[in-house]
């Protein structure tokens, strides 16, 4: 283990891949592979927010499952403060479970309806620490007040809460073990506008207070614009554009990013971008097109795009994977 604690990079992923086997036929032979995530790399600094955006089916949630190790990556490397997280020994498992936590998309499905809020929040402590019963309760109550839940909610069941309150409970559960990284998988997409603002405020307050780092997975670009420091755009399991929020939003280079941004409805007419029509849908990952995965929907596609797969190239802190950009001279 190398000891570099002052390294600001908290979490580093290198070339993460997740392939799922597809079995078919009488003998359930493996016939194909779904490349859900195909070579994604990023680094996350302390107190920062990395947003992962893309359409459904692009591998965002698979990535979240890998980071929290609900599923083990097929290949690739994952480092937490320089220490590899993929070694299969109990100590690493324990560290990872304490330091990286997840908040799921649907608060109506992610809380056990048969358990009281107190029990739900206490469970991580029961499993991972050796605190006494009264200490655990004190810690749960402290966390509940931190996320804006009243003390009397301790003995209530999830069905007694609204969506926004449930998401607060889910966030509180994620924070019970004092993690440093919270992976939030579409935390606000099931919520109403005004409640969404409340939950986003809570997440930003907690970040300031506890110095959390977020991996924020979302398809809502206006939310991402508000909360993110770095943005990664994914398409069919691959990263197509990556950079700081300002670079990506002010100067999107990949045609997919441009189309996504232009498709986001805006209230303010000044912020509306020229609509780039995107025809068709995300191709099936079972049967990805040859060459660049985006070529069938891309307005700039040319011959090379249908032959070869573009690589992610770093243009001065702005990574883009596109032949069109490659052939042009990049203008920051």
């Amino acid at each position: 283990m190398n000891n570099n604690t002052d390294n600001p990079v908290l979490l580093e992923a290198k070339n993460l891949k997740q392939y799922y086997p597809v079995k078919s036929g009488l003998l359930k032979k493996q016939t194909k592979q779904v490349k859900a995530v195909d070579g994604v790399s990023f680094s996350l600094e302390k107190g920062k927010t990395l947003a992962v955006v893309g359409e459904s089916g692009c591998g965002k949630s698979s990535l979240a499952r890998m980071l929290t190790m609900i599923e083990r990556p097929t290949s690739g490397e994952l480092f937490f403060k320089g220490q590899s997280l993929l070694e299969a020994d109990p100590k690493t498992d324990k560290l990872r479970r304490q330091k990286i936590q997840i908040v799921f998309q649907n608060p109506y499905a992610s809380l056990n309806p048969r358990k009281k809020i107190g029990t739900i929040l206490e469970e991580p402590l029961l499993i991972n620490t050796e605190l006494s019963k009264s200490d655990r309760k004190a810690k749960v109550l402290a966390m509940m007040s931190k996320v804006g839940l009243k003390e009397e909610f301790y003995d209530r069941y999830p069905h007694m809460f609204s969506g926004g309150q449930r998401q607060r409970i889910a966030i509180a559960r994620g924070l019970m073990l004092d993690p440093e990284i919270v992976v939030a998988d579409e935390p606000v997409s099931a919520l109403d506008v005004s409640v969404r603002a409340q939950v986003l405020n809570l997440m930003m307050d907690l970040q300031d207070e506890l110095g959390l780092s977020y991996v924020f997975i979302s398809h809502d670009l206006s939310v991402v614009e508000h909360i993110a420091d770095d943005v990664m755009v994914m398409y069919l399991g691959r990263c197509v554009e990556q950079g700081s929020k300002n670079t990506v939003y002010d100067n999107p280079q990949h045609p997919y990013t441009q189309a996504l941004l232009s498709a986001t409805p805006r209230l303010n007419p000044d912020l509306r971008r020229e609509r780039i029509k995107l025809t068709g849908e995300l191709p099936s990952p079972l049967n990805p097109p040859k060459g660049c995965a985006f070529n069938a929907r891309c307005r700039l596609a040319f011959e090379q795009c249908t032959q070869q797969q573009p690589q992610l190239i770093d243009y001065d802190q702005h990574k883009i994977s596109c032949f069109f950009v490659e052939n042009q001279t990049y203008q920051p």
Partner: peptide, 8 residues
Amino acid sequence: LDVTIQGQ
């Protein structure tokens, strides 16, 4: 639906 499909 997704943003791009929403637009369509």
